[in-house]
């Protein structure tokens, strides 16, 4: 029962805190432009061009290629392309961790779907029709590969930080802790599921958690769920929430080049932003208007 609550709470807190973080960034005031080319939505984006390459650009229809932006975004999200392009050795490790996490997210969703199937009276096994078999195999595949990749990735990133002279200088104990937490979560998962490679028990447990049905639990499982709870609550509070930050830094900063044209929506925003008075102000004499005391 209390494990059910913990599981629900973990998911709610994770989503809620992440959404809150996104909300906080979203409602920050309009900032000055600081786009950085190439901007994928620009027509000449292949070489980094922009609408500024046109004479009287302000008088012409603005062509925005949302598809190209979407593709670039997906490349970043699914493959961490910038890291692949600019630091391949680290990419292998980082991508192992990230891909592992993506697979584990898919695995969780599949466990829930499988659990719901069980609760609805269905079956999940290789011989229970297309749906049941599909869930069965996909769950096994995502779970096993996810656990292995995420464990490998987090361990290797941790070790790399320790043994790389440069990274070590910049890594705070908290940052080691972050990786260690991910590692503990996946390793405890491996211990819990080592005898359940098809995740059939996991599915039943998920069904029980979903339906608040009491079931027999091992100490190991409790430990695993508690670690997961800590991890899910902690991630959005820490800078591991970069899945939120990354969206804003690309979409709202580096790729945001909306011109302030007469009659545009941007013009309205600028007008509102300029009307706002700030409560804090700078003190240097050329700004405050006050001569420095010593003069």
């Amino acid at each position: 029962m209390s494990l059910s609550i913990l599981a629900y709470l973990a998911i709610i807190l994770f989503l809620g805190l992440s959404a809150y973080k996104a909300y906080k960034y979203a409602k920050m005031p309009l900032h000055g432009r600081m786009e950085l080319y190439p901007v994928p939505k620009e027509q000449g984006h292949e070489y980094g061009g922009s609408y500024f390459e046109e004479v009287e650009w302000w008088n012409k229809e603005r062509k925005v290629n949302h598809m190209a932006e979407l593709i670039d975004m997906l490349k970043e999200m699914l493959f961490i392309k910038k890291l692949f392009d600019n630091q391949r050795p680290l990419w292998w490790l980082s991508y192992a961790l990230h891909l592992g996490i993506y697979l584990l997210i898919a695995w969780t969703v599949l466990l829930i779907v499988g659990g719901l199937t069980l609760l609805a009276g269905g079956q999940v096994s290789p011989s229970s029709g297309i749906w049941g078999a599909l869930i069965f195999y996909l769950t096994a595949f995502t779970g096993l590969s996810g656990l292995v990749l995420a464990t490998f990735g987090s361990a290797m990133l941790f070790l790399r930080r320790i043994f790389d002279d440069t990274l070590r200088k910049y890594t705070t104990p908290q940052e080691y802790f972050n990786l260690a937490l991910l590692y503990c979560a996946t390793v405890s998962g491996i211990f819990v599921w080592i005898n359940d490679l098809t995740f059939s028990t996991a599915r039943e447990i998920t069904a029980n958690l979903i339906s608040f049905t009491p079931f027999e639990v091992s100490g190991l499982l409790i430990a695993h769920i508690v670690i997961l709870f800590i991890m899910f609550t902690y991630i959005p509070l820490s800078k591991m929430s970069h899945y939120v930050g990354k969206y804003f830094s690309f979409h709202k900063v580096l790729w945001e080049n909306e011109p302030n044209l007469r009659g545009s929506a941007m013009e309205k925003k600028v007008e509102q932003a300029l009307a706002r008075r700030s409560t804090n102000s700078w003190s240097a004499p050329h700004i405050s208007g006050q001569a420095p005391a010593e003069e």
């Binding site: 960034y25 005031p29 990274l167 910049y170 700030s278 409560t279």
Partner: peptide, 23 residues
Amino acid sequence: TDANSGVLQPFLLSFEYCAKCNT
């Protein structure tokens, strides 16, 4: 603070999220 509202969002993102990946 809002004394710096013109760069607050970009600045906070760069301030908070560095993964020290050294890329």
